[in-house]
Structure formats: structure tokens, C-alpha cells
Design a protein around this nucleic acid. Structure first.
Length: 404
DNA sequence: TCTGGGGTCCTAGGACCC
DNA sequence: TCTGGGGTCCTAGGACCC
């Protein structure tokens, strides 16, 4: 039986949400209608474009490029900061509205959802529901979305990417040849900047070229990825819309440093602050980790990562800091470091882990517990170790609030 | 005053075992 | 007595997404 799938994608999400928030709080200009971007902090060396207005786009500004370049393309460009508190609120508003239509809904990212309406249409037509959702979001939430309509997730997602903003598009199987095959192969989901040149070398320029090439040839050349590319180019995708109540598979925190650092003790302090944040989030999910991973990026953008199993699965701040430090000492080669990251992998539910494998250090758990409660009540930065304020500022400064 | 930060998944190659 | 080979697990690195 053919499935009834929608993909809902917020138009210029970060910029639109910031615009809605500002208008609501008395700002008279709609920043969606001027040359504007949402960008990182240039002083912190995280100055890249995260979202752009349609007018900014006309100046040739692209997502991901340095703000410095963007400003050169348009000298009237207005730059607004990131505020994830606002983004999460509007993301939840969107999700709650869409949840009225089906229980089978997947939050694919902060600004995208898949809906499976196969058993939830109650006699309505899928396309009518798509238009209704499109209209209701604009009226009730004051930002716009594109809605893609099809029989699987891949096609619905490709459809929502057609003409923007505020549009509803279908991409059914019988439309693939007309609507999808003429597009450049780079437009296909999962074909990124490294794969495009490889395909070009094989004479593959459009999604249609990819669809028509011999599948076995692609599989020999690209393995599993070849199978996936070929299936996608032919509009084949059996994956289910999954309501993701499931736990994360890894939790990480990384930070670009205001200046390159070569001093090991400095990097160590950063590692401590990052580990604290990671283990705090781990406990929030009631998870324990089996592996710790440390990432370093050198000043010329070379990334290194090393991992190490914890002696026993844990969410203890002390243990995670300890292991992260050991990894750092093993891997650090006296180079100038631009970015430092800590992440935990191989996560398990704390209640499900076998007791014999779980070294239950009640005293340490109690300390983490007390500090977590204070953080939950008064904010993450309310608890700070003596002499660590500078580092906290670097790590937490990323999340600094947008002041009017 | 050039290049974020959060993730997921895959793969090549080495270690180790029988 | 020159060099096996299959299976499994682990690690580092890299691809992609938003």
C-alpha cells in the first residue's frame, strides 16, 4: 500500500525565527525583508553565516561562508546573533502543531519534520492536509514552511526543497523523471562536496544520469554508499517515519578557541570544562558512557581524534574528566590548537546496565547529583570551580544570550 | 578580520583468536 | 617450515546532514 508522507521544512529557519521574535518584542523592521544574516561571533572566530534572508542570497551570500566575506558581498548587510533558546521554542511550537495530525512524526532536525499520514487522513486528501499545514503555520506561528508531499521520506524531502518559500510541492513516483532527474546531482540528499567531483569524473552530472547508470558498477565503486545513491536517484526509500523518543548515541561539546593555544595546561582546563558539560548532559538523559573521545583541530584545520574506553561505564564527571585528560596527554603533539572537543560514545541506559559491570560510586554520584540540582535550578553557570572562570567563559560564551 | 557546533553512519586497517 | 585465513572487535578518520 502506498504510504502518505509529508516533509515540513522551515524557510530560513534561524533568520525567520529571529525575525518573528524581534517583531513580537517591538522591533519595527522585519529582518526577513532586508539584507540580513544570522551569524556566529567573529571575535570568537566562529563567524560564519548560519542563515540568510532572500535579499542577502541575491547578493551571492551562502550559508557556511565567513561573515567577513558576506559583508564584502553586501556592505549594508545586517548581522544578528544565534539564540538557541528562541530557536528551540519555535521548533517546539512547530512540532506541537504538526503532532495534531499524526502520532507518526519524526523530528529530523531543529527545523524539519517527517509525517506519516497513511492511517491518519480520515478521508481527507494528503495534498489538502499539506496545504492546510502550510497555511496554519503561517497564520498561527507567523513563519513559513515548505511542505513536500510523496510516498516516501526521500521524495518528500526532495519535494520540499523545490521552489521556496512558503510552497507545497508533490514528488510522486510518476513525477521523478520530470521533476527530479533534470536536477544537478549535487541536489540529491546525501551527495556532498566530496562525492560530486567523483561523480563528475564518471560523467554523471544530473540525478537522472545517476539513476540510469548500472547499479552494480556503482556498488563496486562506492560500496554501501553506491547502493544508497542509486536508490535515492531512483526515488527508492523504504525507511520508516520514526518517532524519536530514543536516546542520543553520542553526546559531545566542542569549542573554537579565541586564539590558538599551545600550552598544555590551557588545553587541559578546556577539556575539564567540556567534560563537565558533557557528563552533565549525560546524566540528564539518565545514560552512562563506555567510551570517551577527544578531538583537537590544529590551526591549519587538521582534525585529530582519539578515543578510550572508560574503566567501567559511567556518567561521573570525575571519571570522564580523568579519561579525557589521559587521552589528551597521549595524543597532544605540541601543535597550536584551534578547537578542542570532548564526546562520549557507546551510551547505555543507566537502569538497564548490569550491576556487575557498573562500578557504583555512591559518594561521587551524590556530589554530581547535588551540583546537577543547582545547575538545573539556577542555570549551568551557577556552579563554577575556583580558578576556572576564564575557561567557563570560553566554553559557555558560545551560548551567550542575544541582548536586544 | 577566513573557515560553528551538534550529530549519525561507514570503512580501512590493525590486533587478536583459533 | 619464507609468506594461511576467517572472524571479531576496536580505532581513527572521513563522509554526510542541519
Amino acid at each position: 500500500m502506498e504510504r502518505k508522507i509529508l516533509h515540513v521544512d522551515v524557510n530560513n529557519a534561524f533568520l525567520s525565527w529571529t525575525a518573528v521574535y524581534m517583531l513580537k518584542n517591538g522591533y519595527s523592521i522585519d529582518i526577513r525583508k532586508i539584507p540580513s544574516i544570522i551569524g556566529g561571533d567573529e571575535e570568537r572566530r566562529s563567524g560564519i553565516v548560519l542563515a540568510k534572508s532572500p535579499i542577502a542570497k541575491k547578493f551571492g551570500i551562502v550559508t557556511g561562508e565567513p561573515i567577513y566575506f558576506a559583508k564584502k558581498k553586501c556592505n549594508k548587510l545586517e548581522v544578528f546573533p544565534v539564540n538557541f533558546e528562541i530557536f528551540n521554542k519555535y521548533s517546539n511550537d512547530l512540532f506541537n502543531l504538526l503532532s495534531q495530525y499524526t502520532d507518526k512524526i519524526e523530528r529530523f532536525s531543529i527545523d524539519e519534520c517527517f509525517l506519516d499520514l497513511t492511517h491518519y487522513l480520515n478521508g481527507k486528501k494528503l495534498i489538502d492536509v499539506a496545504y492546510e499545514i502550510n497555511r496554519r503555520i503561517e497564520e498561527e506561528l507567523k513563519f513559513t514552511v515548505n511542505v513536500g508531499v510523496s510516498s516516501n521520506k526521500l521524495l518528500a524531502k526532495m519535494a520540499s526543497d523545490f521552489e521556496k518559500p512558503n510552497k507545497v510541492h508533490t514528488l510522486y513516483e510518476y513525477e521523478i523523471e520530470d521533476k527530479m532527474w533534470p536536477l544537478p546531482v549535487s541536489e540529491l540528499f546525501m551527495i556532498g562536496r566530496k562525492t560530486v567531483p567523483k561523480l563528475y569524473n564518471l560523467g554523471i552530472r544530473t540525478i537522472g544520469d545517476l539513476a540510469k547508470i548500472d547499479k552494480d558498477f556503482l556498488v563496486k565503486r562506492f560500496g554501501k554508499f553506491g547502493t544508497m545513491m542509486w536508490n535515492y536517484a531512483n526515488g527508492i526509500d523504504e525507511s520508516e517515519v520514526i518517532e524519536k523518543v530514543d536516546d542520543p548515541k553520542s553526546i559531545g561539546n566542542s569549542v573554537t578557541l579565541p586564539t590558538d593555544v599551545t600550552n598544555l595546561e590551557e588545553i587541559e582546563k578546556i577539556i575539564v570544562a567540556l567534560s563537565e558539560q558533557v557528563s552533565f548532559r549525560l546524566r540528564k538523559h539518565n545514560l552512562i558512557a563506555k567510551t570517551v573521545n577527544v578531538q583537537l583541530r590544529t590551526k591549519d584545520f587538521k582534525d585529530y581524534s582519539h578515543q578510550k574506553p572508560l574503566k567501567f561505564p559511567t556518567s561521573s564527571t570525575k571519571e570522564i574528566i580523568q579519561t579525557a585528560k589521559e587521552i589528551l596527554f597521549e595524543m597532544y603533539k605540541k601543535e597550536p590548537i584551534r578547537l578542542v572537543g570532548v564526546r562520549v560514545d557507546n551510551l547505555e541506559n543507566k537502569d538497564e546496565i548490569q550491576l556487575s559491570f557498573f562500578n557504583n560510586n555512591e559518594k561521587q554520584d551524590k556530589i554530581d547529583d547535588v551540583l546537577d540540582n543547582i545547575k538545573n535550578k539556577y542555570g549551568y553557570n551557577s556552579v563554577t570551580r575556583a580558578g576556572k572562570l576564564d575557561v567557563e567563559n570560553i566554553v559557555k560564551g558560545k551560548e551567550k544570550k542575544m541582548k536586544d
